[in-house]
């Protein structure tokens, strides 16, 4: 019987030595493995992109507001605006939306794919799917529009087409301008369609 007990205690004796040793080995290998992992993987930004980002001050969702001397409120927003080679006089913008609030309550909304604001001449040139919508019922499309920012003076150098209060309208050119009335009391907005115009009015059958 004794030998049997002897065997048992000898196994336990050995285990008391082996088990702590293997625990030690396991523990140290964790640190070994960890150290290898550190040096791989590249930085997310390449050097060139970094330099370019630093030099170009692209402004996201810029807002340009001004009040003209005749009291019209002008708000121009865009998805992105980038000053051209550093000077803030010329700013190129993408996804432009201009809102003109006339003093007589009329609102003119203008959208375009792209535009450039020349603040020195307080003028913007909008191009690409230009759409003009006025609260008086005009909804016009053209390719390019030149609009002053300090007064109501909008001009489309090319053909314009769309809807007006009278019906569908097509014209070679269009100008929207406002003049003080003779007495100078309130300002009258005139829309002129030039270089040939065609209007189709469809009477509403009662």
């Amino acid at each position: 019987m004794a030998s049997h007990d002897n065997l048992h205690s000898r196994i336990v004796g050995w285990l008391k030595i082996i088990l702590p040793l293997s625990a030690l080995v396991l523990l140290s290998s964790v640190f070994l493995v960890a150290r290898f992992k550190e040096h791989r993987g590249t930085l997310p930004y390449s050097k060139i992109a970094l330099k370019e980002l630093a030099s170009v001050q692209t402004v996201a969702d810029p807002v340009f507001t001004s009040v003209t001397d005749e009291g019209q409120h002008v708000v121009v927003t865009a998805k992105e605006a980038t000053p051209r080679d550093g000077d803030y006089n010329v700013v190129d913008a993408v996804g432009v939306h201009g809102i003109l609030q006339e003093t007589d309550g009329e609102t003119i909304n203008i959208w375009s794919d792209a535009g450039t604001v020349f603040s020195a001449e307080s003028r913007t040139i909008l191009q690409g799917n230009v759409r003009i919508e006025t609260s008086s019922g005009y909804n016009l499309f053209t390719d390019q529009l030149i609009s002053a920012v300090d007064r109501t003076d909008i001009e489309s150098p090319g053909p314009v087409r769309g809807e007006g209060p009278l019906g569908t309208i097509e014209a070679g050119r269009m100008e929207v301008s406002s003049q003080q009335t003779a007495e100078g009391t309130e300002e009258k907005v005139t829309v002129v369609f030039k270089d040939g115009v065609k209007v189709i009015y469809t009477p509403q059958t009662q």
Binding site: E106, P165, I169, A171, T190, K194, G196, V197, V199, P203
Partner: peptide
């Protein structure tokens, strides 16, 4: 038929927005 569409063609059209007048 006086309810047929009316087409107006001209060289120029001036619209005085507030008064609902169109001058071809």
């Amino acid at each position: 038929d006086s309810s047929a569409p009316v087409e107006v063609v001209a060289d120029q059209l001036d619209v005085q927005r507030s008064e609902g007048k169109a001058k071809f």
